[in-house]
């Protein structure tokens, strides 16, 4: 739905033109960024802690290496993660299990941050179907992840897309709000301004079954990326699941990877 507007405006034969402009940006308040992932695959799992920098700054993102990071689940397992350097912390014994709720505790720079995420049951990822549409003279390829949604309502899926082994900066989310309990036939809303698929391209999709909060985080990003007349929704920091004003997201999810070559 969200790209209907982009299609509409593209079709309107606009003499649209683009140029890079210089803007004055407001000062940025550097904030802690926490990225945590627990999956159903064998560990170790990583939590990465860094800080944001100003938009026009270059150089590396400051890493926080003196934090205390604890992950525990609702079955009484708990461990303190080991510092790996460059802001990365790793688990040692913890094993991600479907249905369990994980809690992340971080003490960094005198502040504490907490987050919670529940790993949904794994939904098998069968294959990637490649659809073709002719728009004007061009052939556009559509990617349809094939999986059977379970009968219980409330499933959310996030897809991570790589084209020719390059990670694409796109936020792709699906849910069962419309068609619960059925085999998916809906295409991913890939922004084709950034990615023009052509025959021979190797597409890799990682399907993650995520909880509702994580899905909301990525849906917000997807809506902001929308471009249409007057732009998409007003951008903002997406509502993450980490407390105390940290950026980022903590996600417990299942993982399954499929690849396909565009015919």
């Amino acid at each position: 739905m969200r790209d209907v507007i982009s299609i509409l405006s593209a079709a309107l034969l606009f003499t649209s033109c683009e140029k890079v402009i210089e803007l004055d940006y407001k000062g940025n308040q550097s904030r802690v960024v926490i990225e945590g992932n627990i999956t159903n695959e064998p560990g170790p799992y990583f939590v990465k802690i860094s800080k944001s920098i100003g938009l026009s700054e270059s150089g590396t993102y400051p890493a926080i290496d003196n934090a205390v990071v604890v992950v525990r689940d609702d079955f009484g397992n708990s461990e303190t993660l080991t510092r790996q350097g460059s802001g990365v912390y790793a688990t040692n014994t913890l094993q991600g299990v479907e249905g369990r709720t994980y809690t992340l505790l971080v003490e960094a720079e005198g502040q504490s941050y907490t987050a919670q995420s529940t790993m949904p049951p794994h939904v098998p990822f069968d294959s990637i179907k490649v659809g073709e549409v002719t728009i004007g003279g061009d052939i556009e390829y559509q990617l349809i992840p094939v999986y059977k949604d379970p009968a219980v309502k409330g499933n959310n899926y996030r897809f991570v897309l790589s084209a020719n082994d390059k990670l694409e900066n796109q936020h792709l989310v699906q849910n069962d709000e419309l068609r619960n309990g059925l085999v998916n036939t809906i295409r991913l809303e890939v922004n084709d301004d950034d990615l023009k698929l052509k025959p021979g391209d190797l597409i890799t999709l990682t399907m993650q079954c995520v909880d509702a909060n994580v899905a909301m985080f990525y849906t917000t990003l997807a809506l902001m990326g929308d471009s249409g007349p007057g732009g998409g929704t007003t951008p903002s920091n997406p509502p993450g699941n980490i407390s105390n004003g940290s950026l980022g997201v903590f996600s417990a999810h299942t993982v399954e990877v499929k690849s396909v070559t565009i015919p």
Binding site: K51, G54, L55, V160, T234, P235, N237, L247, G248
Partner: peptide, 16 residues
């Protein structure tokens, strides 16, 4: 609303 800052999350550049 323009971004004021940036950070990296799961390998993707994000805006603050």
């Amino acid at each position: 609303t323009f971004p004021t800052g940036k950070y990296v999350l799961n390998g993707m550049t994000m805006y603050q």
